[in-house]
Design a protein around this nucleic acid. Structure first.
Lengths: 298, 298
DNA sequence: CCACATCCATTCCATCAGGTTATCGATACA
DNA sequence: TGTATCGATAACCTGATGGAATGGATGTGG
């Protein structure tokens, strides 16, 4: 009666996609491997979970039963594992803070220093997240708190506080004609290709494409990147332009990339976020206070 | 974030035993294999779960956290898997009934036949359980209901109804001097070696050794068996005698084994048991009714 | 003080589970 | 009737896993 949770996750993927082939690509494994996984799960349970057909994979009654219960089970699993890791960090007096490249920028060091004074003996572990995870590890419980840019997907299920606000500028190839101007109207960028965040970030990607401020015109995407360096590279290569916090001009200066103020787009806000479960965690709350105080005095 | 539940079970065993070596024998694996499993779990979690020493394995804070949460998690896992299997049986219109060798004996066929009339289209799958599991698969949810002998371990957490009562007889080697008597007083058997159920059945084993009716004298155990055939074999071989339901004389007659009535021991009762969750399951309740009605009219 | 017992860790080796690529058979569709 | 798509299968390769034997550290008893 022992089952690897991975098999259950695979099962769920197949159940959701209704197709081995599609589930296989979603899971980044080959289709035959998934075939074997599913059959292995069925064998271990001694139960048929799907009825196969040319049209795809349809759930049997047993499959439906499992499909209803599996998500909760997996969530419980993840929860337990996270709590275990969390216990280790508490024991080691380590606070894990995720941050998005260019989130708090200059404030970050001051915040950490302030926390160090407030909680001597504790260490802050800063984990930079890729842009493919705009919640900076909070969504999957990898961190105790996160410095990030608002808005971000999953925002509703987490607590957050706004720390800073700054205008959005544009980063463009130095050779770009518009780079000659001291300031650029966003409307002039509507038809430019943009370097964007990965598709799966949804709301976040749209926000940095300023999809709402284009008067309904669809954005053009010239490249997709996940990391600051790839992002700078793509811009320098001329694959596109991108909106960025004004502070990026100081933090991510690079030959071939020019930053210019933009009019006609809303500013961006930096926030500190934490899971509801940490509302009563004195250490996390101390960190939040450090963020608030440090940023208020800037 | 994917962990095989077997690793968690291994972890729990080590945590409970406080020792790799002892846990390894309990799990029937070699000690190095367990060492690797535990290390693998620690690696996957990125957390130390034990502090090693010559004295054994002591839990770290993270280990304690996991130790508290793991049992519930594993129980939830098992529960989901059982419900999945159960859904398959319902879909196939199969009712699984565990039974203990010599439980309902002649009544069994009548019960199944009655159920077949009450629920046409349904099939009853009878699963014989070994004596090492006196709950006949109910305890681990393998069956929907079970015909068994009362009392049985775990009785409190399950529903049950008494169906029949019959005297306990003794089965002894035909060559045994007492086999010449028509009836035997239990006190005459106090010093005989007994063929007993496995140690781990606790209460059940004691009941069939009639430990309570020996006037405080400890029973002698000449052999331990798990299955009717081994049991008969052991008796025929002269390893010991054993108490048995009177009906065994009809159902388990065998050359070399003689059954005789015994005075001075309480009778044995046959019951039908089901999990509380099945209180509202109409099919299970129909089966219970068939048991009740069939046995009442005998 | 020296075997000895008792821990856990390590090494080496055999086996097997799990992955991948290539291919097949069946079926719907143009 | 080609063609695309779906799942199943075959052949192969690698890495994980388990077992036996052994090692190192540390109390324990004669």
């Amino acid at each position: 009666m022992d089952v690897d949770t991975r098999l259950v996750r695979s099962f769920l993927a197949v159940a959701e996609e209704g197709s081995l082939t599609r589930a296989a690509e979603r899971l980044y494994v080959s289709q035959p491997a998934l075939t074997k996984q599913i059959r292995s799960l069925e064998t271990q349970l001694g139960v048929r979970l799907f009825t196969r057909s040319r049209a795809g994979m349809a759930l049997t009654e047993a499959g439906q039963a499992l499909r209803e219960r599996a998500p909760g089970l997996l969530a419980a699993c993840d929860q337990v594992l996270r709590e275990t890791k969390s216990a280790a960090r508490v024991a080691a007096r380590v606070l894990r803070v995720g941050f998005l490249a260019s989130a708090a920028n200059e404030a970050t060091q001051d915040i950490v220093a302030a926390f160090g004074r407030l909680r001597p003996g504790w260490r802050v572990e800063m984990l930079q997240a890729a842009w493919s995870d705009p919640s900076a590890g909070l969504a999957d419980g990898e961190v105790d708190a996160a410095l990030l840019r608002l808005p971000f997907p999953g925002q509703e299920t987490l607590r957050h506080e706004v720390l800073l606000e700054e205008p959005r500028w544009v980063a463009l190839p130095s050779s770009h004609p518009l780079a000659a101007r001291a300031e650029i109207a966003f409307a002039d960028l509507w038809d430019e290709p943009f370097v964007a965040a990965p598709q799966e970030t949804g709301e976040w990607r749209d926000y940095w494409l300023a999809a709402d401020e284009r008067d309904g015109r669809p954005p053009r995407v010239g490249a997709t990147t996940d990391q600051p360096d790839a992002w700078l590279q793509a811009i320098a290569n001329g694959y596109g332009v991108a909106l960025a916090p004004a502070s990026s001009a100081r933090y991510y200066a690079r030959p071939g990339v020019t930053y210019r103020p933009v009019t006609g787009v809303s500013p961006t806000r930096v926030g500190i976020a934490w899971p509801p479960a940490a509302d009563t965690d004195p250490v996390v709350q101390d960190f939040v206070r450090c963020c608030r105080d440090t940023c208020a005095s800037m």
